[in-house]
Nucleic acid binder design. Structure first.
Lengths: 269, 269
DNA sequence: CGTATCATTGACGTCGGTCAATTCGTGTGG
DNA sequence: CCACACGAATTGACCGACGTCAATGATACG
């Protein structure tokens, strides 16, 4: 139960790669509909400009936010993949959430406290930067954003709950099936990938293991099993789901479990 | 990997035991400071009265909310213990969250959808009932409540993340140690139990197992081990933590991990 | 007191972990 | 263009933490 990890690159702090003073205005934002800003009209969008401090690029492999350090900034993920993770003292790692474009990064119950988890860039990422100081005022200005954030956090909590059920009560086969099927739908519905096409999967088998409470070795064996069952294929940093229904069957989910990824928050209450 | 469960009583719907038309007014509420209503002044508290529909008693062993059914009501837990859980088709159960007095029950990202989980009364419970319909309007009336809810959900998400780390990456000994220590602090700080005293623990060993991804048999063996190490003692529905520091050592947490249970949301942003 | 639920313990099985060797793939420098 | 390096993937042999099955006690409750 003692797993060591080189962890050298994992603990690097975020290193800004470039900082455009303002970037393109919010009107041209490519993730607007998925993001915190979704409830705002074109006119209202201008207000946000005053509260954010531009965009920033993060190189793959760096941490945007670090467990134990205070977070002075929050981020809207514009492009790229990230994950949230916690480390135990001896290097064991739990990956909580895979973050996709549109996700809001770094919020936690008490923003005054040091971060309870880290956020790591899986690919090169572009983020929209919000100084923490501005957030409360922004919400006062636009209460719809506060409600939207509540909805997003509640969705995260729901994902965390599902993941917990997987890790606590599903076998390795079910777990990996569920995880990849979930990602498949999440990416497909957000990015409009056509049915039958494969999706990018910038995760190593060790990442998948750390997300699901397994070792990379066992992930490998289980992926082989899923491939031999004709359900999916993981290769070259891409995931091809060949039999979504069969996979859903393995994962033990009913049809419309992932349908909600298509929903818009509209009536949150 | 197939675990059966009698589950007969588990699936019973909530059965109201008595319904006082108004109950005692909110001013006398015993959990006000821990609850959703904490940010309200004495005068503001009166407003809430108009949005809630009284209190209700739930007998131990019944479900307040049921996975798959729509939730028409939300609850403020006034007294008693509950837990949230999810069931897989074959009866495997994952317990997500142990709910204590003050917790807000039944909120989820999309309130229009059926419940994604069930809520079960461990002891007899008293709840303060909010019709779902009223909630949005209440938040419009008192934005501080919306912010408070956001804070509470974010705290839940943080707990879910910690639990996920436990189940995914900690050994049975560490997991149970962490879980019971967490409960110990949560109960102690909320209810003002003196140091050294034992706390109520209305959980069976099967509950603990279902919360941590273990079987009740293994929970039993691990509790024996913790007892033989002189760290704690579970008996007669009570938990006595004899060596909090030693237990924290086993659980692998630093001192102030649980300190935040004492914090008030004050400056959430 | 009979019955039901929970706790406890032993014997044994297995899923997934550990260790370690080999292969593959991609990028890099000569 | 090729040799090399380095991380990731793959596979086999073996092990151990935790699960399964089943019997026995302990408690509570009507």
């Amino acid at each position: 139960m003692t797993s060591k990890r080189p962890s050298a690159p994992l603990l690097d702090s975020a290193k800004p790669q470039s900082q455009r003073p303002s970037g393109s205005p919010c009107a041209a934002c490519t993730v607007r509909d998925q993001s915190l800003c979704a409830p705002l009209s074109d006119e209202e969008l201008g207000i946000v400009e005053g509260f954010r401090s531009g965009t920033r690029r993060i190189a793959a492999g760096h941490d945007l936010l670090v467990q134990g350090e205070p977070a002075t900034e929050l981020y809207n993920l514009i492009s790229g993949w990230v994950f949230n993770y916690q480390l135990l003292e001896d290097g064991r790692r739990q990956i909580d959430k895979i973050g996709l474009p549109g996700d809001f990064l770094g919020f936690q119950a008490d923003l005054e406290r040091p971060m309870g988890y880290s956020v790591h860039a899986l690919t090169e990422c572009e983020v929209c930067v919000f100084p923490r100081r501005n957030l409360l005022e922004l919400f006062r200005e636009k209460p719809a954003l506060a409600l939207r954030l509540t909805w997003m956090i509640a969705r995260d909590e729901s994902l965390a709950r599902e993941r917990l059920t997987s890790v606590g009560r599903r076998s390795a086969l079910e777990r990996i099936g569920y995880f990849l099927l979930d990602l498949y739908y999440r990416v497909r519905l957000r990015e409009g990938v056509p049915v039958g096409a494969d999706i990018p999967l910038p995760l190593t088998q060790e990442h998948i293991g750390d997300a699901l409470g397994l070792t990379s070795v066992h992930v490998n064996r289980t992926l082989r099993e899923l491939r031999e069952m004709g359900l999916l294929r993981v290769a070259g940093r891409r995931l091809h789901v060949m039999d979504p229904d069969g996979l859903a069957d393995i994962a033990g989910v009913d049809e419309d479990t992932f349908a909600e990824y298509a929903t818009f928050p509209g009536t949150a209450c």
